[in-house]
Nucleic acid binder design. Structure first.
Lengths: 112, 112
DNA sequence: TCGGCTAGGTAGCGACGCCAACTAGCTTGC
DNA sequence: GCAAGCTAGTTGGCGTCGCTACCTAGCCGA
């Protein structure tokens, strides 16, 4: 995957994906990076993800608390707030509508 | 659709969609705006689209020529180049892979 | 002649993902 | 005992690109 393009595609999607993962279960930054990579979105750098989490926290979409790490440094756990859940549901529906529109245009191209 | 978010989603996708439309048939800026709107991507402003077309032209993805308008001012027609076609096919495949990964994360959310 | 539609272009702004660099706790191995 | 190396989080500056706002200009109907 072309890296330059992927980084553009992440805009406005990365925070949604983070919310989506947190909707499944609470987690912390370092683990989210691994989850996003496992989902096929590529390696998100810490310098990219942590500001996202701070923005989500400041806007009330997620809540955070520190927990002692069993092994290693302490972790900052995040869980989604009801407000974050609302945002997520609305935006996820919008995304699927948008991506559907893009697919209509790109589908025939890929078919060849 | 939330406008702020849509404009983020357009990043890295808008030029692809323009290429995709030009792969179907040659066209000009003003018509492309209408086609994009018809495809469900919302209203793209001229101040957004024309720089995109200039970038595509400068990078050799599309070729342009002026044609007299039957009624109204002259039109700058664009058609996709072989190089643009290659870019389009590769990027369209990447997009579908990327969007698939996002869908995996967002699917369960939308289901509720 | 005055909108209003068509058609294209430019300038400055802001959001955000990127890279690079940093702190700091814990484990492993020499 | 100490140097790597992994885990975990944070910050700062940079570049891209869609956005708004504004401009030129041809053509038409009232």
């Amino acid at each position: 995957m072309e890296l330059e393009r992927r980084s553009q595609w992440l805009r406005g999607v990365l925070d949604l994906c983070v919310l989506g993962l947190l909707a499944q279960r609470e987690s912390y930054g370092y683990e989210l990076i691994q989850s996003l990579s496992a989902a096929g979105l590529g390696t998100i750098q810490g310098g990219t993800l942590y500001p996202v989490l701070l923005r989500l926290q400041r806007s009330g979409q997620v809540a955070a608390y520190w927990r002692e790490g069993a092994a290693g440094p302490a972790r900052k756990y995040y869980r989604i707030t009801p407000e974050g859940g609302q945002t997520l549901r609305r935006a996820a529906a919008d995304w699927q509508s948008f991506a559907g529109g893009v697919d209509v245009i790109l589908r025939e191209v890929a078919a060849r």
